[in-house]
Nucleic acid binder design. Structure first.
Length: 619
DNA sequence: CTAGGGTTAG
């Protein structure tokens, strides 16, 4: 009885210190008073579970852990709770040490024990550890046909990216449930094998919300937004419930489509199932991203302002949104607003801020933040941040500085870093730096046609024709073909029309051509001259003119003018970077027609209004 | 108890 009283007072003392932080602690507290100490193991198990959710309490200082080991050394649930606490909270080796002590004392593990260890290996993405534990599970024998344990193992292999092992467990387990199937579906989806994922999904007789969502998300993550929406519609038709996670997948698919019609559609659905941007951080952040990618940064900001709770995703998405729309000041202001809250910036936040600086030429501001990001905000610069800085410096014309940064950076420069340098060399017409960058890029990305074209164009602008023909020869040898330029425009009724360069297939192509010619006449009236550098060299000026006229974004513009109301905004999306000449034409068109034109190219948005672009011709 | 989860670059 003495022991009992000591333990009780200990429990109460510690629980008192937890009570202010967690309601759950109060429940446990009450539980102890209502039931006496004969339920002590259970109480401790509950406490350990509580502990794992209170990161400010150090596990080692908790006297109950010691008590558990001394007074209930053979209770597997207690051991498991301990292991679980360390597995989820760390340090992981301590969890493993406890597991081997447990085995030495001949306490039999329960499925729970393995679930804790497997989820810890999954979280650490430690495939070797996971496989080792898997082998031990097999040796114990009793768990070979345990559905729950097998599902946890599948999940572990999926998280560690070991598809074949996940498949093997799946194939060999005696029964499978929807959890096992979903695990495997995700495994294939993560590898980009959506056909395999689809086959599994189609063969699944009982599909629940999680399984459906895995398919929606899988398609969204593999850049197949139409398929994602198709599955989502199937899910709605089947009357399956929808939650935040489902919505995030669908919203992400709509963001990829970039069409306002879909944006409105999915937002209404989110509101109607009770997960509007205001109530769910997850959905709210996804909506911010979607609206920015649909060209509607004002709406994105409205969602942001309407959110009850904001986390690092909400802030980062909004900062990136401002950045790709050229609203550098907005991005930077929001970053400083964020520092006033308890939300801490992460590596993506900084990518957003640097992108904003880069697109606005704010070199000093970007450099200062880059220099202090680690000591002031605890975010160590990665290769991605160096790529941003190379872009920031290079774009602003400081090519030598950019090159020096790349050559002295503490990690191996990746393709993005050299690509930024090559892009800057192209903008500023520096074939020497372009050569250095492309030499590395051709090794890192031998099939990326864009790099060859940039180098060739840089040579051409500098009149270095020997260089041009060398690059062309290289491209021929590698059998690299140009990606056709392709643009999409939204018609009045929300339908999307696609145009490729030189297109003649559109049913209204004659009207479009006529509209475009009319536009050119009016543009010439305000001094427009075609920019013949925007088309390949080696052909005569008349041919160049024809090619220039047939650029996909110009066709899309003409169709947009024809198919939307006067006064409404024309929204165009393009798969490649917008060309110089088209940029000039868009500026002029916004002046002579009085229309607002928004063009999303492969990197950012251009807002054309009254003859000027939001990018200030700096992109 | 186990399965689905959002932001990033040239």
């Amino acid at each position: 009885m003495v022991v009992a009283r000591v333990v009780e007072s200990e429990v109460v003392r510690i629980l008192d210190s937890c009570c202010s932080t967690l309601n759950h602690a109060k429940q446990v507290h009450g539980h102890i008073y209502r039931n006496n100490l004969h339920q002590c193991s259970y109480v401790i198990t509950k406490l350990l579970r509580l502990l794992t959710t209170l990161p400010h309490l150090p596990l080692n200082s908790y006297p109950l852990l010691l008590f558990a080991q001394v007074h209930a050394p053979n209770n597997p649930f207690l051991w498991t709770a301990l292991i679980r606490a360390y597995a989820l909270r760390g340090p992981l080796p301590e969890a493993l040490r406890l597991y081997s002590s447990m085995r030495q004392r001949r306490v039999s593990p329960v499925s729970f024990t393995f679930s804790a260890l497997f989820s810890a290996s999954a979280a650490a993405k430690d495939a070797a550890l996971g496989a080792q534990l898997h082998a031990q599970t097999l040796l114990l024998g009793g768990f070979v046909s345990d559905l729950y344990v097998n599902n946890t193992i599948i999940h572990m292999y999926v998280k560690c990216g070991v598809l074949h092992s996940a498949r093997k467990v799946f194939d060999e387990m005696p029964q499978r449930d929807v959890v096992s199937w979903t695990g495997l579906i995700v495994a294939y989806a993560r590898r980009g094998h959506m056909e395999a994922a689809r086959d599994l999904f189609d063969g699944l007789l009982v599909k629940d919300m999680v399984a459906w969502t895995a398919m929606v998300t899988g398609y969204a993550q593999n850049a197949m937004p139409e398929n994602a929406l198709e599955v989502f519609r199937g899910m709605v038709d089947a009357g399956v419930e929808i939650d935040e996670v489902t919505l995030v997948g669908v919203i992400s698919a709509c963001a990829q489509l970039g069409a306002s019609g879909y944006a409105k559609w999915v937002r209404d659905i989110a509101e109607s199932v009770g997960f509007g941007g205001g109530s769910s951080v997850l959905v709210g952040s996804a909506l911010i991203d979607m609206y920015s990618k649909c060209g509607n940064v004002e709406e994105a900001y409205d969602v942001f302002k309407g959110m009850k709770e904001r986390n690092v995703f909400s802030y980062s998405s909004m900062i990136v949104g401002f950045a790709i729309h050229g609203l550098a000041r907005g991005a930077i202001k929001l970053f400083y607003d964020m520092l006033e809250t308890e939300v801490k910036p992460n590596h993506v936040t900084f990518v957003g801020v640097f992108t904003a600086c880069s697109h606005a030429g704010l070199v000093d501001q970007g450099q200062k933040l880059f220099a202090t990001m680690e000591e002031c905000y605890g975010v160590a610069p990665t290769g991605e941040h160096y790529a941003c800085m190379a872009d920031l410096l290079g774009r602003a014309g400081h090519l030598e500085k950019a090159l020096r940064l790349v050559e002295t950076m503490p990690m191996e420069p990746n393709g993005a870093v050299w690509g930024a340098l090559l892009g800057a060399s192209h903008i500023h017409g520096n074939p020497d730096v372009a050569e250095i960058a492309s030499r590395r890029l051709f090794e890192l990305e031998p099939d990326n046609i864009g790099n060859y074209l940039l180098l060739a164009n840089t040579y051409a602008s500098a009149g270095r024709w020997d260089g041009v023909s060398r690059v062309r020869k290289l491209m021929r040898e590698k059998n690299l073909k140009k990606n056709p330029g392709c643009s999409w425009v939204e018609a009045k009724n929300g339908t999307i029309h696609e145009f490729v360069a030189g297109d003649v297939k559109h049913p209204e192509i004659n009207e479009i051509k006529k509209e475009l010619n009319d536009l050119f006449e009016r543009l010439k009236g305000i001094g427009y001259q075609p920019n013949l550098c925007s088309v390949p060299y080696g052909i005569n000026d008349e041919e160049k003119m024809l090619l220039l006229m047939a650029h996909s974004e110009k066709l899309a513009l003409a169709f947009g003018l024809l198919s939307t109301d006067a006064g409404s905004t024309i929204k165009i999306m393009k798969n490649l970077r917008i060309c110089e000449d088209c940029h000039i034409v868009m500026c002029g068109a916004s002046k002579v027609t009085g229309r607002k034109i928004v063009v999303r190219d492969n990197t950012r948005f251009h807002h054309f209004l009254n003859g000027a672009c939001s990018c200030s011709n700096f992109w």
